[in-house]
Design a protein around this nucleic acid. Structure first.
Lengths: 238, 238
DNA sequence: CAGTTTAACTTGTATTTACAAGTGAATTAT
DNA sequence: ATAATTCACTTGTAAATACAAGTTAAACTG
């Protein structure tokens, strides 16, 4: 029994600073301690500190200015699912509830699947589930998730209410999302999607099709997300 | 008379590799030369090479695998305006034409502007223009751009047909986009947007509101983009 | 006092060195 | 022959060091 996978130093600093920013230790517009100060504070060298700050900058949590410093740029409280990149979702779980619409089941892949599947994926079958996510009791996201049934024993019998699908995969199967690609469209609400998201027929709906890469070679996670952007918009940095 | 701003080595390597990938010297699925090989080839050290590869990975042009190498992942030919991050737009200018709807004019800022403006921006007035972008002669994007009129003399009298707004700003005013944030929504087409994009009234339309940061402090570029995603979707990596 | 220069900060770029950890193929042992 | 091990190669993490370049405020000069 080991102590688990070792976590790199720059990752730890990243987590600490991220938490500090999000908990308000530093707030919008503040200057972060300089790189040299962070070195002293956390006992690292500058390249390591810079790696942490670089990741934060990439997440949009700070903006670096040469000759000046790193300025905290806490994201406004909009919906930020566009970047799964960090360790947790950008949206704090504030009032976000999840309701399972279709419990995980194993089905054959749809014939007209939105992404190209590998041979292995196709013959392994597909774990399918549908969820509805509500923000302040208003349905915002309707997610359909697909994963190839590769080395994920007993996953259909797990409880998904509390933990996110990402959490289950990470904790029980050591699967982590490393990145991915997505397509975004505006489509009219169908009878089904409109019904679930409280929209009239043919009202506009945001549709994301995402393919997520994991640390397990050949294992991808797909989701088709319908999003009611009437009240909240999708927020992202680039 | 100087030779212009010096360009860092890692940036040069990034440009070279990017061009090679996009021109097909390396193609989808290929392994890039290893980091050590690139060091030898281009006479740099590994951290420098890694910085270039890191940027490429960030752009989604390669995927790095520990113990294996960097795999070329050329983006499918979808519309990739979501990441302006690189030096050029991700979408090759293949059949992309721009039509000016409203030539650049100086106006006061709209009262209900989509982003919060600084004091300086508000009192400087606003350079406004509208453009329509056509892909294969089909109108896809309807852009409304706003910039604060700060240190941009004679910009309203320049020709915008050939060069992009980004190009003009870069070449004549040394303004470069460094990043930004955006909100995405699905909205129904209005009479105006529908007319420009050949959509029936109330058909779904993608609406992006973007604020772009530049290398000039206090100077931001705003745009409101309406996008007909009927035929093409917006593509992006995360 | 106004304007300029300097100095002390900041982040950016780059080298050199070292070892850890993942991958895959060749080698070895069974 | 097959399974396990080793080995060579890949990227990942980390240190110590140096100088370039942008920013700001203090010091200096006219």
């Amino acid at each position: 029994m080991s102590t688990g996978r070792i976590i790199p130093q720059y990752r730890k600093l990243y987590e600490v600073l991220r938490r500090h920013i999000q908990e308000g230790v530093y707030s919008e517009g503040d200057l972060l301690p300089s790189e040299n100060e962070l070195c002293r504070l956390y006992g690292m060298t500058r390249p390591t500190v810079r790696q942490a700050l670089g990741t934060l900058a990439n997440d949009g949590l700070i903006i670096k200015h040469q000759g000046k410093g790193s300025i905290v740029h806490n994201l406004p409280s909009e919906i930020g699912i566009l970047s799964v990149s960090g360790t947790t979702s950008a949206l704090g779980d504030r009032n976000l509830r999840t309701r399972i619409v279709v419990k995980p089941v194993i089905i054959p892949w749809p014939d007209d699947f939105m992404f190209v599947l590998s041979e292995l994926e196709r013959e392994s079958g597909c774990i399918y589930m549908e969820r509805l996510r509500l923000l302040d009791n208003v349905p915002i996201f309707y997610d359909i998730s697909y994963i190839a049934n590769i080395n994920l024993p007993r996953i259909t019998s797990r409880k998904f209410e509390d933990k996110s699908l990402f959490g289950i995969l990470r904790d029980h199967y050591k699967v982590e999302i490393k990145g991915g690609e997505q397509r975004i469209k505006a489509i009219p609400a169908s009878l089904k999607t409109g019904g679930l998201l409280n929209l009239k027929r043919s009202q506009p709906l945001l549709h994301l099709e995402r393919k997520m890469e994991t640390n397990v070679a050949g294992l991808f996670l797909y989701s088709s997300i319908y999003c009611n952007t009437g009240k909240y918009s999708i927020f992202g940095r680039f």
